[in-house]
Amino acid sequence: MDIDSFWKLIEECRRQTRDRDERLAWLRDELSRRPLTEIVQFQVRLDEVTHEAFTWDLWAAAERIFGGWCSDDGFCYFGLWMVGLGWDAFSRAVADPDALADAPEVQCLVARPRELWNDDDWPEWESLDYVAKEAYGLLADVDDCDDAFYEAVEAEQDNVGSRGPFGEQWDVRSEAKASRKLPRLSAMFPLGPLAR
């Protein structure tokens, strides 16, 4: 599966439904109809694109949306959620994190208290990271496929290593800096005095 085929599958998944669980079920079913090697390659492409989004500026965008703080895991899940937005929104956000302000999924959160966001509102999609492994397990007809799946993924990956985020870290709670680097997201998601 090349990168174009990966994004085509993501886009088709987006057209199915807005409900994340239903999208995952569709994607799992679609992947389980493909050869094991293609399922592994889906995960490799997913890892590649989320690595591309591993930047300090996007982390700051996530922190802004989340109210001033985002954990390591939360940022990983945010990157997976960005993939779920589709190629156009994803690539624009990687080039300019403030472009997330244009995403309907972000716009629907504005002026709503975070405590009222439901699970499908939160800009995180951890489950996307497991769908290929689940499809692999269905096709391989084994209960515990973790070792075989992750060994196959590792064998297909270029040795990227686990470097830190790209770019320069900055504090999203600095209103002057946030207004310069993320002007629209800063206006959409003002931080209260108690932001961590």
Rank of each mutant, 00 (worst) to 15 (best):
T55L: 10
A99R: 13
K177Q: 06
A62W: 08
G137P: 05
Q107P: 02
F166S: 08
V94D: 00
W87Q: 15
Y150S: 09
M82G: 01
A95F: 08
P123L: 03
A148Q: 00
E124R: 15
C70N: 02
S91L: 00
D146P: 02
E105A: 14
P165S: 12
S162H: 09
V49Y: 03
L58H: 06
P165L: 14
V153I: 14
C108T: 01
R114H: 14
L109I: 13
G86M: 00
L80I: 09
D96I: 01
D141S: 09
E115F: 09
A53S: 04
W69S: 15
L85R: 12
E38R: 12
D47A: 15
A89E: 08
R163S: 15
Q41E: 13
E151D: 10
W69L: 04
W170I: 12
V153S: 05
F78A: 02
R173G: 09
D73M: 06
S91M: 03
W117N: 15
G68D: 07
D102L: 00
V142H: 05
R92I: 04
A89F: 00
R173Q: 10
A140G: 02
R64E: 04
A148Y: 07
P104T: 04
L46E: 12
F90A: 04
E156K: 07
V94F: 01
L139V: 03
G67W: 02
A93V: 07
W122Q: 12
C145R: 13
V153Q: 11
P113R: 11
V40N: 02
F149C: 07
L100V: 00
W87V: 09
L58W: 00
D102W: 02
A60N: 04
A140K: 09
W125N: 01
S174K: 08
V110I: 10
S162T: 02
D129A: 12
G79N: 12
S162Q: 13
R173C: 07
